[in-house]
């Protein structure tokens, strides 16, 4: 998949996502994440540029193309009076070769709630139903727009496990998020979007030169806490250690968060 577009909200986004990859688009609110994703889904008209998703222009793609992608919506309260199982079964009818509805309900962990009306679900359960409806058609590519906003930590971990399972099956996943730990936990590659432009792209480990950045060494001596930055932390620690045990020793590289805050500043 390749995307390049010029939009008021998005200007100069150049992305290539390979098949089977989990790709995260990071960025603050208003950076243009949703706009970018909606253009890729074919739900927003772009003003210019070239976009290919699964080999087709999303703006002109036919039904068959739509059956090959899955979209997990950011906000939806539809089908409130249907049960979870009814809803998943109904959406399965739209596709030529859907997954088994009961298996999908099980996969997203809603088997206990299969007979519950959708309006009675909690926020996290509702989002898992959204995922179920997004993947029922056995999509090759899944769009997840800020999927875990408002989740408690346990629900987020469960959700991540679900996404990993999908990725393991070979599904390409394009995820937007403003949670850095989420991108780090899930994504093979990330791009940082700020003010409608891609400002960095790479693996979570190397983003923004993170792997080569100076390490920060912290320890404490009788005069109080000490800190220094160095490109040779091993050597420095070895020297320091000649005087004996170092209290509170830590050696850290910039976190993804440090790099990210630097990039979007």
């Amino acid at each position: 998949m390749k995307a390049y577009e010029n939009h008021q909200a998005v200007d100069g986004v150049d992305l290539d996502v390979a098949r089977g990859e989990v790709f995260a688009v990071l960025g603050p609110n208003g950076a243009g994440k949703t706009t970018t994703v909606e253009i890729l889904e074919g739900h927003r008209v772009r003003d210019g540029g070239e976009v290919h998703v699964l080999g087709q222009d999303p703006g002109k793609a036919p039904r068959t193309w739509r059956s090959r992608i899955g979209v997990v919506l950011q906000t939806a309260n539809d089908a409130a009076e249907l049960t979870v199982a009814e809803s998943v079964r109904h959406y399965a009818k739209y596709y030529a070769d859907p997954r088994d509805p009961d298996e999908v309900v099980d996969l997203v962990g809603l088997t206990d709630k299969a007979k519950a009306r959708v309006r009675t679900l909690s926020g996290g359960q509702r989002r898992r139903l959204d995922v179920a409806l997004g993947i029922i058609g056995r999509p090759e590519l899944v769009f997840l727009d800020e999927p875990t906003t408002g989740f408690d930590p346990e629900a987020r971990r469960q959700f991540w496990a679900l996404i990993r399972e999908l990725a393991d099956e070979g599904t390409t996943i394009l995820l937007t998020t403003h949670y850095l730990d989420e991108a780090e936990a899930l994504a093979d590659r990330v791009a940082v979007l700020a003010k409608g432009k891609i400002v960095a792209e790479g693996t979570p480990q190397t983003l923004g030169g993170r792997a080569h950045a100076d390490a920060r060494i912290r320890w404490a001596d009788p005069n109080g806490p000490r800190e220094l930055f160095t490109s040779e932390p091993t050597k420095v620690v070895a020297e320091l250690a000649r005087h004996g045990e170092l209290a509170g020793l830590t050696v850290t590289r910039p976190s993804l968060e440090d790099v990210y805050l630097e990039l979007i500043a």
Binding site: E41, R63, R66, L73, T75, A76, N77, A79
Partner: peptide, 11 residues
């Protein structure tokens, strides 16, 4: 409520 939005994502 998002019914149409979701339907539009399907074939």
């Amino acid at each position: 409520d998002g019914t149409l939005k979701r339907l539009r994502t399907t074939p």
